[in-house]
Structure formats: C-alpha cells, structure tokens
Amino acid sequence: MMKVITGTMDKARARAASRRGKRMVRFLQQYVTHAANIYGKHCETFTEDDEKDLVPCIVGLVKFFSLLLHDEKKHTEEETIHLWPLYNEVINMAACLSPAKIAQLFPPAKEYNGGGEFKDYFTAIEAVKAAGGHERFKDRDKALELFMDLNNRDTTYCCIMGLNIMDAIRARQGGRSLIETFLEEQTGQPCSLPKSFHEARDKDGNVYVCDDMGNVLGLKAKPRRPKWLRVVSGKE
C-alpha cells in the first residue's frame, strides 16, 4: 500500500519550474513585441523585410508551447480555449515562410544510430524538399505536416501540446480524446490514456511514479552524485 505524496515541490523541482516559467514569459513577450509590427498583414504581402519580425514571432511561440505543461486540473476552461488560437497562430505564421527556412530555425536532430548514419536526419531533410524546399508553403496543412516530420524537439513538443489542448477542449465538451480514438482505430482495442501523474511512497520509503488510473510506472530515480564531487578530509 502506497501513500500519495502531496505538498510543495522539493527545492530542485521548484527551481526548475521557476526557470521554465521565466523562459516561457520571455518567449511570449518576444512574440507580443514583434507581432505588433506585422499585425493585420497576410502571407501574400509579406516581404523579406517582414521576416525580422515574423521569425522572432514563430520562434517565440514554438519555444513557449514546447515548455508549456498543460494540466487540465490547473487550467480553467477559459484559459485552455485561449491557448488554442495562439497555437493556430504558430502554424499560420510558419506557412508564410519556406520549409527550408523552418528547418533552418528548427534544425532536425542528428541522432547517430551506430550504423554509420544519422537516424531520421536525412528523412527530415527529404520532408523539407517534399514540402517545397525554398518555396513558400502552399497552405498551413503542409506547414503542420513538416512540423511533425522535422525531428526537432521544440516543434515536436509544440505539436504534442497543440494536440493536448485540443483534447482538453474536447474532453470539457464531452468528446473523446483524439489520441485515444486514433489508437483504437489502429489497434482495434479499447484505449484509455492517463491524464496526470503523481508520486507515491511505500512503507519502506521508496518513491514511485504513478498515473491517475492507479498504475505504477516505476521507481523514481534518485539524484546522481556529481562525478566531480570528492571526499576531502572526511567531508564533502
């Protein structure tokens, strides 16, 4: 039998949350500042001079959503609904650039697979060429497809957060999760995904990560001692 851990976060997690929050505010302010200079313009009228404002807008919003941790229990319905048009703005503005420019702003990750190649990197580059290369996107759907195929951490997390926001809105309106619906269609099996996670401690003091469905996902890793830390005269 385990007891759910409640209360304040430990100092390390609190500092990490504070740093993430400050970065989110900075990226959102970056978007607001530059968006004022291009407000009311359409993709067809954008020039190269406008990119000095358009690029910081896109980068700021993508970075913001990649850092956002959306929790249905902490966000009101009004806050969740207001996030959706902001996410749409990411894709609308990205569609005003070329696939090559997006890949320059958010480079595909190079992950060595041990076989002499970089896993998914060349696949992402081919996706850039297929989307039009240095030509402007034909529509926003093509921009969204590239975001998901780019193999970049920020664009991937941004897309996942957009899907989470859409799911949260559907759930509040009594609809089914898009992810769960998709998995059920692919597997033919009922699917129910956890919505939140927490920590619980057993009688021996071990801390486990659990989900809201009662599943124990594993033992929480203990902080590693830095390799450079050495004992000097019996003291650390």
Score class of each variant (00 low, 15 high):
residue 2 M to F: 10
residue 3 K to W: 07
residue 13 R to E: 15
residue 16 A to C: 06
residue 16 A to R: 13
residue 20 R to H: 04
residue 21 G to P: 02
residue 24 M to T: 03
residue 24 M to R: 04
residue 24 M to I: 03
residue 29 Q to G: 09
residue 30 Q to R: 12
residue 32 V to N: 11
residue 32 V to L: 11
residue 33 T to G: 08
residue 33 T to L: 13
residue 34 H to T: 03
residue 35 A to D: 10
residue 35 A to H: 08
residue 38 I to A: 00
residue 38 I to D: 06
residue 40 G to Y: 02
residue 44 E to M: 10
residue 48 E to M: 10
residue 49 D to A: 14
residue 49 D to Y: 11
residue 49 D to S: 13
residue 50 D to F: 02
residue 53 D to L: 07
residue 55 V to Y: 06
residue 62 V to F: 09
residue 67 L to M: 11
residue 69 L to C: 12
residue 71 D to I: 08
residue 73 K to D: 15
residue 75 H to C: 11
residue 76 T to D: 15
residue 77 E to P: 00
residue 77 E to N: 12
residue 78 E to I: 09
residue 83 L to M: 05
residue 84 W to P: 01
residue 85 P to R: 00
residue 86 L to A: 02
residue 88 N to E: 15
residue 91 I to H: 00
residue 92 N to F: 11
residue 93 M to H: 12
residue 94 A to K: 07
residue 96 C to Y: 06
residue 100 A to G: 10
residue 103 A to E: 14
residue 103 A to Y: 08
residue 105 L to P: 10
residue 112 Y to G: 08
residue 115 G to M: 11
residue 116 G to N: 12
residue 118 F to A: 09
residue 118 F to C: 05
residue 119 K to G: 00
residue 125 I to K: 15
residue 128 V to H: 09
residue 129 K to W: 14
residue 130 A to G: 09
residue 130 A to D: 15
residue 131 A to W: 01
residue 131 A to D: 12
residue 131 A to Q: 09
residue 134 H to D: 15
residue 135 E to R: 09
residue 136 R to C: 02
residue 136 R to I: 03
residue 136 R to P: 02
residue 139 D to N: 14
residue 140 R to Y: 08
residue 140 R to F: 02
residue 142 K to I: 07
residue 143 A to P: 04
residue 149 D to N: 14
residue 154 D to W: 04
residue 157 Y to T: 07
residue 161 M to I: 02
residue 162 G to K: 00
residue 165 I to Q: 00
residue 168 A to V: 00
residue 169 I to R: 03
residue 173 Q to L: 09
residue 181 T to G: 12
residue 182 F to A: 03
residue 185 E to Y: 06
residue 185 E to W: 06
residue 187 T to V: 02
residue 190 P to N: 04
residue 190 P to C: 07
residue 195 K to C: 05
residue 196 S to E: 09
residue 196 S to D: 10
residue 197 F to D: 02
residue 198 H to K: 10
residue 199 E to T: 12
residue 201 R to H: 01
residue 207 V to M: 05
residue 211 D to I: 00
residue 219 L to D: 14
residue 221 A to E: 15
residue 222 K to L: 13
residue 225 R to D: 13
residue 230 R to T: 14
residue 230 R to A: 12
residue 232 V to L: 11
residue 233 S to C: 09
residue 236 E to I: 06
residue 236 E to C: 06
residue 236 E to K: 10
